[in-house]
Design a protein around this nucleic acid. Structure first.
Lengths: 113, 113
DNA sequence: TTTATTAATCGTATTTTTACGATTAATAAA
DNA sequence: TTTATTAATCGTAAAAATACGATTAATAAA
């Protein structure tokens, strides 16, 4: 329970929000879906599947890579992207833990009711 | 698998992104944490706990209410907020399903490696 | 009543996100 | 080599998110 400043939030809160933000756009969900269904994907194929310009897709890929959910492997002039299994499971675990945090509470009524 | 327009994403992709967006800010994670730990919370108490102005907190509460994760109950001049158990479990289930979607795949190597 | 408290909303400034075309750097193909 | 392909980056415009103070409407307290 450490707050670095009065205006700051907990590290854990910031961390969860960061992962949520990475998933907070349909294009990024769509990209992850593609990588899941095809197991891996050339960047160009992703661009073909999405209704977005190449530079925009590249930006979304960059964000997903920044949080570590995907990794890119250079293959000649092309780049093959895939999901980072370890990070995926880490994020899965974080959210699972977060959601269970409430679900495990005993079933009290809300407020006065 | 319905795309309403060429420039659109799948309903499921939009839905997941919407829930992610609701969780994509430390203040909203902090609010949910408060509601979990105290089971319920008067709006004013939330304002006291967060390093944000009353109007800003009210906005964040509005967003969480908009996606259904919390509900507010008027109690005189005050408003008591709490987590909506049904929606909470629905969102939990959606993410759980989404993450398992990949985890359940057989362990193939990424791209060419 | 009048006054105080509470929380939503309004108006607005600032920042961040999203998107695109153009350019660049790198590899592949001719 | 020269030319084509691929994907990242740059510059920038537009939209959305975030934040705040001021105001409002409602209830509670005096």
């Amino acid at each position: 329970m450490i707050k670095s400043k009065a205006t700051d939030f907990l590290r854990s809160e910031i961390e969860l929000a960061e992962y949520a933000k990475a998933l907070a756009h349909p294009a990024r969900i769509a990209i992850l879906n593609l990588l899941i269904s095809k197991n891996a994907c050339i960047c160009g194929d992703i661009v073909d599947e999405l209704p977005l310009a190449q530079s925009t897709v590249s930006q979304h890929l960059k964000e997903l890579k920044a949080v570590g959910l995907i990794k890119g492997e250079i293959d000649g002039a092309k780049v093959c992207y895939c999901i980072d299994k370890d990070k995926w499971e880490e994020v899965q675990g974080l959210w699972d833990h977060y959601f269970k945090n409430f679900k495990n509470k005993k079933d009290e009524k809300c407020c006065s009711t």
